[in-house]
């Protein structure tokens, strides 16, 4: 496939998103959320390249979000909060990663799930600090020292999310094409061979894990800055399930897949909820079933199929 097709598609998608956000003001919010979740899903995609599914990745999203919520009163600057969220999630990813990369397959998935639920319980039970299930309100934040109005602020965060999404997409693309990224596929097919050629599989996976944690934290930070209210539900297992759902919907074939999936997911949910307030779950479930049955490679699979068809 042409090396330029994906970046070109990304560029077009970016333009479309901006157009949609400009034409329909309230969609700007929904799309920012989609980009934030897409970022976290991109992290899961990395691990999936190594054949590992994390059922607990919303933990890092919650970590990023709570970092923003806790630090915003002291550091009310988005451009400082984001790196801080990245730092915290990287450290957490490293510490947790040291343990979980020893496991594979179902054990890797469940261990992540367990840790994510532990984090949920911590957020919920340490009531005096985290305010429990009611959650914490994120105090107003500045962007580059400016304190713009609501409308401008929404645009700025949306822009920030877009930049981060495109940046991470390119990074992931480059990473997956690098020897480190190729080694991930090696873990999936046969790990022993990797060791034989002198590549430490665990370290390869650990690097991917930390990178994916960082992207989760980044997504969470964006989510907190957008919704301005964080609750422990962010780290609940259903939130992790949602991320995996988005990955299946979008397809794991390309760095564009997660964002495609996230946008589709949020739009379907929002329109389904607007259409039938008490049966939107059924529509969402129907869409996933349809994707699994008719497009097992996800939405990206459909796009890629068309591209290949021409090439």
């Amino acid at each position: 496939m042409n090396r330029l097709v994906e970046p070109l598609l990304a560029l077009a998608a970016t333009a479309l998103l901006v157009l949609a956000a400009w034409a329909v003001p309230w969609l700007k919010f929904v799309l920012t959320i989609a980009l934030a979740k897409g970022l976290a899903v991109l992290g899961i995609l990395l691990l999936l390249r190594a054949g590992q599914v994390s059922f607990g990745h919303s933990m890092f999203m919650a970590l990023g979000a709570y970092t923003v919520a806790f630090l915003a009163p002291q550091v009310p600057e988005a451009l400082l909060l984001l790196p801080l969220a990245v730092l915290f999630s990287a450290v957490a990813g490293l510490l947790i990663g040291l343990f979980v990369v020893r496991y594979r397959d179902i054990f890797f998935s469940m261990l992540n799930l367990a840790l994510c639920m532990v984090f949920y319980s911590v957020l919920e039970k340490f009531y005096a600090i985290t305010k429990g299930t009611d959650g914490i309100r994120v105090t107003p934040i500045t962007i580059a020292g400016q304190e713009p109005g609501r409308e401008t602020q929404e645009w700025l965060i949306f822009g920030l999310a877009l930049v981060l999404a495109v940046g991470s997409g390119l990074l992931v693309r480059a990473y997956l094409a690098s020897p480190m990224g190729r080694a991930l596929a090696g873990i999936k097919t046969r790990e022993t061979r990797l060791e034989f050629i002198g590549v430490p599989a665990r370290r390869v996976l650990l690097f991917a894990y930390v990178l994916s944690a960082v992207m989760g934290g980044c997504g969470g930070a964006l989510l907190a800055m957008t919704t301005r209210h964080v609750t422990p539900l962010l780290s609940y297992w259903t939130a992790s399930g949602e991320l995996v759902f988005i990955l299946i919907l979008g397809g794991a074939g390309s760095a564009l897949g997660p964002f495609l999936g996230a946008a589709a997911y949020e739009l379907v949910r929002v329109y389904a909820a607007a259409l039938v307030a008490d049966a939107w779950q059924m529509i969402l479930g129907g869409v996933l079933l349809a994707v699994i049955l008719f497009a097992p490679q996800g939405l990206w699979g459909i796009v890629a199929g068309r591209l290949r068809g021409r090439a």
Binding site: F29, T226, T231, V270
Partner: peptide, 12 residues
């Protein structure tokens, strides 16, 4: 569905 969905719905 939770806070992030609800605040989006509020805007809608």
């Amino acid at each position: 569905p939770g806070t992030d969905h609800l605040v989006g719905e509020y805007r809608r």
